[in-house]
């Protein structure tokens, strides 16, 4: 009896201006016995991860790096639609600006915590991000929990 296996590996990486890009590779394979599944999964995982990593380092178009379009003020495109509320968007931008946080790091945090970039956070997720940002900048109770590394402040231009 053969066993069919379908596996995919996906990775999402944050980019400047609260954007991100992701790439996934899927693969179908077959093993002869159930005992072979574990070893095959391990092999395919390594294979897919390597394949994705080799490609995802090429981000292609990166918002904010355009040559022709004038860069928006503060490098943030406020006209881009966000899924969270306008107030949450304003607060995120304010906390980032006031504390000179690294936008790429904030974007990466959103991807790590919620699986997508800042602009795609719903209100629940944005609330969680805001709380964490406030905690990291010493403005909320989250800091009391300790153990969380504060963001390094972005260098002034």
């Amino acid at each position: 009896m053969s066993v069919n296996l379908e596996m995919s590996y996906a990775k999402k990486v944050g980019l400047p201006e609260y954007s991100s890009h992701n790439f996934s590779v899927s693969l179908k394979t077959e093993v002869a016995r159930l005992e072979d599944v574990s070893g095959e999964v391990e092999r395919v995982y390594r294979l897919l991860q390597t394949a994705v990593d080799e490609q995802i380092v090429n981000p292609g178009f990166v918002p904010g790096h355009e040559q022709s379009a004038p860069a928006p003020k503060n490098g943030v495109d406020d006209s881009k639609p966000w899924k969270c509320s306008d107030k949450q968007k304003a607060l995120i931008l304010k906390v980032v600006a006031e504390n000179k946080l690294d936008r790429v790091e904030v974007e990466q945090l959103a991807v790590t915590r919620f699986g997508h970039g800042v602009a795609l956070l719903n209100k629940l997720e944005a609330s969680g991000l805001i709380d964490e940002l406030l905690g990291k900048t010493g403005r909320s109770s989250a800091k009391k929990a300790g153990a969380f590394r504060p963001f390094e402040q972005r260098r002034a231009a």
Partner: peptide, 21 residues
């Protein structure tokens, strides 16, 4: 709150840290 935040964000989930909070 400490315990659940630590679980979520990868902090110290030990009973000692929770009781300290």
């Amino acid at each position: 709150q400490h315990f659940n935040l630590a679980r979520w964000r990868g902090g110290d989930t030990s009973p000692a840290a929770t009781l300290q909070a």
